[in-house]
Design a protein around this nucleic acid. Structure first.
Length: 866
RNA sequence: GCCCAGAUGAUGGAAUUGGUAGACAUGCUAGACUCAAAAUCUGGUGUCCGUAAGGAUGUGUGGGUUCGAGUCCCACUCUGGGUACCA
């Protein structure tokens, strides 16, 4: 037997697999399919550290077992390469980002290839390839040309909306859109200009134009991502590069109306086999809450107007606790609320109010939302609001704990039943009036009664006594003329970047500003070369400086990083297709991803956007399934030896290349799977990895133990137990325990007289998903001609794993006092007899009353004595 | 603050989901082999008492349920992750 030379063996088989196409996937329809997917990486300039392959190895082990079980396995890999880091890398190194991406991809590919992952590389995708982003642009156009019909609860082509407008005006349309109401008649629609029609349709489109606040750096003339901003020593936001001041600026953007899908993104979670943890994160992120919008009258205070208050305007508040409205003792507006400006002439303490508003303006968002911040506010003197429930005049305040961006930017404050209002009321001595009590009628600290699911009795009202909070909420909303509305925390997603390195948005503007979407035959709209990747100084993307581009009227914003990653799993199904993003046949066959493996940091980004796009494509009939990822597993991070995240900054990065070169890819694979539970974050230990190498060394040496004879019964029994354990554990991603089971079996083989060739080969097969090179090598040494990785997964024989002798523990009062061997089918009475003859047991039971004896078959017998 | 996850030897972790806690591995330690070292092999290794047999104790803390609790219930402490005044 030759010495185990991991370098030689691994290189040899990696080449062989590639030459023979061992892992190539066919799109044939006659086998059961299995789509095992990794989240594709962003090829950054620094390459992989040992943490990255953890997920890839786990999914590889799973894919390899499924392949051996006879599934047609789709297990691809690709690159998500548009976005900020490549652009910054290009700026720094003065090279084209495409060049940077090419180099980085090369590094990644080399690093991935030496680990021996069973990808079908012929299906590789790269989001920056025009052949790929042609379809990203195409999907954008489908979304742009659609609106959301709430009645049918699905997306529909925008042309169908135009038809409705032409026939009926929009009186009947129940759509997700940016407007409250916009009733116009058929005649109006006919009379509208192209531009006017476009402006109306824009409010309905699922991809729409709008404005939003961005981080603007005047010195650099650039819009900055949150990642590019740090705080200076005074806590003010500054640019990471150059420490320049950053402020907010409103800019034109493209948006995706993901809020139209909010309900479906919540309800769809139920059919997914994801950890409850991730589902919870998404649910909270979407943040659905049902509440009431209620109008309060705003009046000039009756103290100022002795002849009676007169109304100066309505004020809409949003509340989830309309049942507590009888306890609303004041109203709070966000300092930015438009009503404040409108009422200026009526505010008696205007100077104080303006001072407060200015103090809030100077604060950053972070300041305003810092923990445990004491609440501040100012009363609008001379102004009162009228509680519509009881007609009482209540004071009006502005305070920065009310946000302009959520709900209506105004709240009715019920200090008895809301903690924030309570704090505020106590500080400023405002009235606290409890109106909801528990059913038992006992008075409690008001702050203890907050949940609207608590049954309560409402007092202070003859009309609404003795009903539950939930019932009261609906009835009172009706009583005060409010309406029930649903609100979400999630906002529509910004789908534009003022950057170079992204997919061009396939739209043109004519000279009147009318938008002309590109036709499919004109796609892809390729990204032109530019002289500089710096933005224009106006905040516009570098594309605004390309004469030919601007002359054609092309949109100068590019798509955000998440565009290409929101559908790549579909492209793998048919990566070379030039007529469609994937053929219907392949989409129907592969259907959806069966097993998706990746980090949980994408819970509120990628995993939500992908579900949104896939749901949309389903509505339009392009994909066969609403949900893209049936099962999701989140691998834990590998931390550095010091327990921190691996990062260049801490100088604690372990490079997989070094590990592969010193110990071999098989050792790395086995170790990363053995270190602990797959979903748990674990610190790397270069000290412990030697154990995995020893395991592989010993497996290699075990070849010497192969004999012509049959293995002993004990070895056969252990083998079948091990096959069972490993099969079940891989299925549940419990890789650490399956390796431990194989180590136990190996120790047994080592002690045994010998092992038959066939039994040893079965052991190699179950080890093959983990240590894929060395098992292949020994497999061939033993005379096999075909790859071990396409052989059939061994089956265990249930009959062979039955133990006929079992050790059980005898306890006295719950403490183990003896262990006895019994044969398999022995009766309880007989065991009792044996137990009571045992001298240890006699010592503990002699002279005592036996109260009872409990027997758990094949495990334990507990004798209870007094 | 709220939500989620977790806490087991020196270390990473295991425990058939209420049934012998510490599998497997690292480390440490003693021995074999060797001129020596490495590698390899064999034994030991939760803590305390004891020469030993054995006993006591032990899964973050305090209570509880049970014949029996790492596992279930209640209260708390700490650690990690998410989120940030969402009305």
């Amino acid at each position: 037997m030759k010495e185990y030379d991991h370098k030689k063996i691994e290189k040899k088989w990696q080449k062989e697999w590639e030459d023979k196409g061992t892992y190539k996937t066919s799109d044939s329809n006659d086998t059961k399919k299995m789509y095992v997917l990794d989240m594709f990486p962003y090829p950054s300039g620094v390459g992989l550290h040992v943490g990255h392959p953890r997920g890839y190895i786990g999914s590889d082990v799973y894919a390899r077992m499924k392949r051996m079980e006879g599934y047609n396995v789709l297990h691809p890999m690709g690159y998500d390469a548009f976005g900020l880091p490549a652009e910054q890398y290009a700026l720094q190194h003065k090279i084209h980002p495409r060049k940077a991406v090419e180099e980085n991809v090369k590094t990644f590919e080399r690093q991935l290839s030496i680990i021996g992952l069973s990808y079908d590389w012929s299906r590789k995708v790269n989001t920056t390839d025009p052949k790929y982003y042609k379809w990203t642009q195409w999907i954008f156009l489908q979304i742009y040309n659609s609106w959301y019909d709430k009645t049918e609860d699905k997306a529909r082509p925008i042309s169908e909306l135009e038809n409705i407008f032409e026939k009926d005006g929009n009186g009947k349309v129940n759509a997700a859109c940016s407007l409250d109401t916009e009733i116009f008649t058929m005649k109006d629609w006919e009379g509208f200009s192209m531009k006017e029609k476009q402006d109306i349709l824009m409010k309905y489109r699922l991809a729409f134009e709008g404005y939003s606040e961005v981080n603007w750096c005047p010195e650099m003339g650039t819009v900055l991502a949150n990642d590019e901003i740090i705080n200076d020593k005074d806590g003010n936001p500054v640019s990471e590069r150059g420490n320049f001041k950053v402020e907010k600026k409103s800019m034109r953007q493209w948006f995706m109306r993901i809020t139209a899908y909010a309900d479906r993104l919540i309800s769809g979670l139920d059919e997914l086999d994801w950890s409850s943890h991730i589902r919870e994160i998404q649910k909270n992120w979407i943040g659905k809450s049902e509440g009431s919008e209620i109008e309060f009258k705003v009046v000039i205070s009756s103290e100022v107007q002795p002849l009676g208050a007169f109304e100066v305007g309505p004020l809409k508040v949003f509340t989830t606790r309309a049942d507590t409205i009888f306890g609303a003792t004041y109203v709070v507006l966000a300092p930015e609320h438009p009503l404040v400006k409108k009422l200026e002439s009526n505010i008696e303490n205007l100077e104080e109010v303006n001072k407060y508003i200015n103090s809030v303006k100077n604060k950053t968002d972070e300041d305003r939302t810092k923990n445990d911040k004491e609440k501040t506010g100012v009363e609008l003197k001379g102004i009162k609001a009228v509680n519509p429930a009881n007609g009482e005049e209540v004071p009006v305040w502005i305070a920065d704990y009310v946000l302009a961006t959520y709900g209506t930017g105004a709240v009715m404050a019920v200090p008895a039943h809301d903690e924030r209002d309570f704090d505020f009321a106590k500080k400023y001595n405002l009235e606290i009036k409890q109106v909801v009590f528990k059913n038992d009628g006992i008075f409690r600290d008001p702050i203890n009664i907050k949940s609207s699911t608590d049954d309560g009795i409402l007092i202070n009202s003859d009309k609404f006594n003795h009903i539950s909070s939930e019932e009261a909420r609906l009835k009172i909303t009706e009583f005060v003329g409010g309406k029930i509305v649903t609100k979400y925390k999630m906002r529509d997603a910004i789908f534009a970047r003022q950057r170079y390195w992204g997919e061009p948005i396939p739209l043109k503007y004519d000279k009147d500003g009318v938008i002309i979407p590109l036709e499919e035959k004109d796609l892809p709209l390729e990204l032109p070369d530019v002289k500089s990747y710096e933005s224009m100084g106006t905040g516009e993307s570098p594309l605004a400086g390309v004469k030919s581009w601007v002359k054609e009227g092309y949109e100068t914003n590019t798509m955000p990083g998440w565009a290409g990653s929101s559908w790549y799993f579909l492209r793998y199904m048919d990566p070379q297709n030039s007529k469609n993003f994937a053929s219907r046949k392949n989409l129907d066959y592969w259907n959806q991803v069966d097993m998706y493996v990746g980090g949980q940091e994408h819970a509120t980004g990628h995993l939500l956007y992908s579900r949104f796009w896939n749901n949309f494509l389903y509505d339009m009939g392009y994909v066969p399934n609403k949900e893209p990822f049936k099962k999701l597993i989140n691998q834990g991070m590998i931390l550095a030896t010091d327990g921190r995240k691996m990062s260049k900054r801490w100088n604690n990065v372990i490079n997989p290349d070094d590990i592969v070169s010193n110990y071999g890819a098989d050792t790395l694979r086995v170790y990363e799977m053995f270190m602990g539970p797959f979903e748990q974050s674990l610190p790397w230990s270069t000290e412990s990895i030697i154990g995995s190498r020893r395991f592989i060394d010993r497996v290699y040496r075990l070849q010497n133990k192969i004999t012509e004879n049959e293995s002993s019964d004990d070895v056969v029994k252990s083998l079948h137990k091990t096959i069972k354990k490993v099969t079940e554990d891989i299925e549940s991603f419990s890789f650490n325990t399956s390796i431990s089971a194989m180590m136990i079996f190996m120790n047994e083989m080592d002690k045994a007289e010998g092992i038959s060739k066939n039994d040893f080969k079965m052991f190699l097969q179950i080890l093959a998903p983990f240590a894929s090179h060395i098992t292949e090598e020994i497999w061939h040494t033993l005379g096999e001609k075909e790859s071990i990785h396409t052989s059939s997964w061994p089956k265990w024989d249930e009959k062979k794993i039955i133990d006929d002798e079992i050790k059980i523990a005898i306890q006295v009062n719950g403490k183990v006092r003896a262990e006895i061997m019994i044969s398999k089918d022995i009766k309880e009475e007989e065991i009792k007899e044996i137990a009571f003859k045992n001298s240890n047991i006699i010592t503990w039971t002699e002279g005592k009353d036996i109260k009872k004896v409990i027997y758990i078959p094949n495990r334990v017998m507990n004798i209870v004595v007094v």
